[in-house]
Design a protein around this nucleic acid. Structure first.
Lengths: 225, 225
DNA sequence: TGAGAAAATACTTTATCAGAAATCATCGAA
DNA sequence: TTCGATGATTTCTGATAAAGTATTTTCTCA
């Protein structure tokens, strides 16, 4: 028996409990399940998720840094009151930081990576299903961000990106077309080594994504009280 | 006796232990006490600070988000390997986000706030001591950031600002003069409601601060191994 | 018989749990 | 309206369980 292949009831969760808890709380906030300003009961949430209070507490620290909840010392955590402009601002910042990364990527990207990105763009047009498109989209941007070759930018982009409510590809009829067109333009700028143009395009791309995020949340009843 | 003024041996720390621990770890990292790549022993650190492991653990989560340490699941936390370019990038991002805030502030700042900022600038020139100047400087930027009136920007700026190693006013002979000049220019742009100019000036101001931060860390032996 | 590789074991460290201590907000009384 | 007691939570501690790492031992092959 070379491995513990036929293992017993090993749990299959995402590595650690606090990441799982954070993901679940994010879902509840953006789905409108947890309303803005509501106090988050650590104990109740822990019971509900079948874990102890500690991972929940750690998840709340993470979400505080992301701006999803507001943590007041010795008072507890509250769902952050996010306005439409807060969402737009989030994507605006996401945009300028991504723009910086694109600016660098325009200089650094190897010919091989550029080719790989062209392939990605091609695959996005060959009518894959929505979920697959979202994955390809993620991969496209990831390539740019890694090419920027800056630990600092990468770490910030990781935080900024996690907050995003996924599901653009399902929610917006015209988003796939718009995204494809944007990606082609960005890729052209990167291929031409036009750092400034790549930066501007990426900034606009994400500002637009911000508007879509607002519309998506609107439709999901995020601001209905 | 209106309050527990003449209290017993109440501890006087900064509200909660994890914030204290985070501050202490930051200090050790930027002073070169904890070297890049070094593994952080949670238990040893907890013993040393006279607290339990949990606040230390929570501090490490915070510092992970700030990019000061790198947390690998079930492996522990390691001091982030920060290059000179990482520091510059940090301030670059700090700059673009602060720039966004300044852009908004140029539109929003009330005449009263502008007057208050003029007073702050005046006081910075009336030869206060270095520590006081650093405080006034902080207040100056805080005014701008609050005037931007965006929870999202404010929260990000809070995180970005904490990482900064303080002590510019002590460390650089010419920084007070440079900072005063920059502030005057920024203030002029804000008073003239020139959003774009305010943004550019703030971006430059912080990019310069980044160079100074690199020089400061260099002098403190941060990169000597 | 000695050297190298694989596997099992022991050890160190992290992640989690349940409960105790401290703190703040609320409510009632003067 | 102000002060003090009560109750509900958060925050922290010590202990336990789960991983990962390193070491040692054993086995195979030259």
């Amino acid at each position: 028996m070379p491995e513990t292949a036929s293992a017993g009831p090993r749990r299959t969760g995402p590595a650690n409990l606090n990441a799982m808890a954070a993901q679940e709380i994010r879902r509840r906030v953006f789905s409108g399940h947890l309303r803005a300003g509501a106090k988050i009961d650590q104990e109740a949430l822990a019971d509900e998720l079948g874990i102890s209070k500690l991972p929940v507490r750690e998840a709340l620290i993470t979400l505080d840094h992301e701006g999803v909840v507001e943590h007041i010392a010795r008072r507890g955590a509250f769902v952050a009151r996010m306005t439409r402009d807060d969402i737009r601002d989030h994507f605006r910042v996401f945009g300028v930081v991504s723009g910086l990364a694109a600016e660098r990527a325009a200089r650094n990207l190897s010919p091989e990576s550029l080719q790989a990105m062209h392939d990605l763009a091609d695959r996005m047009e060959s009518g894959a299903d929505r979920a697959e498109q979202e994955r390809l989209n993620f991969e496209f941007h990831r390539r740019i961000n890694y090419a920027a070759d800056s630990r600092r930018l990468l770490s910030l982009l990781g935080i900024l990106g996690k907050t995003v409510s996924h599901g653009f590809y399902e929610a917006h009829e015209d988003w796939p077309d718009k995204a494809r067109a944007d990606h082609r333009l960005i890729l052209a700028a990167l291929s031409a080594r036009s750092a400034a143009r790549a930066r501007t395009l990426v900034e606009k791309h994400l500002a637009d994504a911000g508007e879509r995020a607002v519309a998506l949340l609107e439709r999901q009843g995020f601001w209905d009280h």
